[in-house]
């Protein structure tokens, strides 16, 4: 989270060799989590996410001794619902809001990013499509989980939501988080998964290639700058701190 924050706050990123001609640079990160972690949406109330409330010992509807618990809880900078990061590929995209991917309304930016993801999923043998007006079978009330609540632009297959995503827009830049499930978790039952892919590391190259095709950019492997790493280290504990977790 700290590194994503550093990338979001990057004031004037240097042109990157992976940038498309004339377009602002795009940074894409792929990662997975250890230990498994529940991330709350920026504005979510703890009492609206039973496993988070139970983890922190807070009384809440649906939270009790039998509530399945994650190994850790953090709060994201991005909006939306909670995600249990286990058995999934997580990605982040950071760029300028002037990038053609993100110009215009938020919904349109999701359509463009999701078109790229759908292309990658097809390579993995999954035929997905935007939810549109369908009510997915993965919808569930009262869990606070992102995968149990959908909007028309969300990608579904097997009539279930399969990609969780959320954005933060700040200072003319955007951070876009996404999660693609390879297997269901105890906290996110009934969601769509990419069953044919064995590991997050196997899905990432397909997604990278799809992003390059759809973003008209060449994504070059890179490492964070010293300043980005310094920021990430300084903020490492903040996203799981009581101060940030209990803000709502």
């Amino acid at each position: 989270m700290g590194l994503d924050e550093a990338l979001l706050g990057a004031p004037a990123p240097a042109p990157h060799p992976g940038s498309g001609a004339g377009a602002p640079p795009v940074t894409v990160r792929f990662y997975s989590w250890s230990p498994d972690t529940l991330s709350l949406g920026y504005f979510q109330r703890l009492v609206d996410v039973p496993p988070a409330a139970a983890f922190l010992g807070i009384e809440a509807p649906g939270a009790g001794p039998d509530t399945p618990l994650p190994s850790a809880v953090v709060r994201r900078l991005t909006g939306g619902g909670a995600i249990h990061h286990q058995g999934e590929l997580t990605f982040s995209i950071t760029t300028s809001l002037e990038h053609p991917l993100y110009r215009g309304h938020v919904e349109g930016s999701y359509e463009r990013v999701h078109a790229a993801i759908a292309s990658a999923l097809q390579e993995a043998g999954v035929v997905s499509r935007p939810r549109a007006e369908l009510t997915p079978a993965s919808e569930a009330e009262g869990t606070g989980m992102c995968f149990h609540h959908s909007s028309p632009v969300d990608l579904i297959w097997n009539e279930r939501k399969g990609v969780g995503s959320a954005q933060r827009r700040k200072g003319g830049r955007v951070l876009h988080h996404g999660s693609i499930k390879l297997s269901a978790t105890e906290l996110e039952t009934g969601v769509a998964t990419v069953a044919g892919i064995a590991s997050p590391g196997a899905l990432a190259p397909l997604l990278r290639a799809a992003f390059e095709r759809h973003f008209d950019a060449r994504l070059e492997p890179s490492v964070p700058t010293a300043a980005e790493l310094e920021h990430a280290k300084a903020r490492e504990a903040f996203f799981g701190s009581d101060e940030f977790l209990r803000r709502r």
């Binding site: 991005t78 909006g79 938020v106 919904e107 959320a166 933060r168 700040k170």
Partner: peptide, 13 residues
């Protein structure tokens, strides 16, 4: 930044 606003899919300053 004096506040934040959230829509279904994004938080903005």
């Amino acid at each position: 930044t004096f506040g934040e606003i959230e829509s279904v899919k994004a938080v903005a300053d």
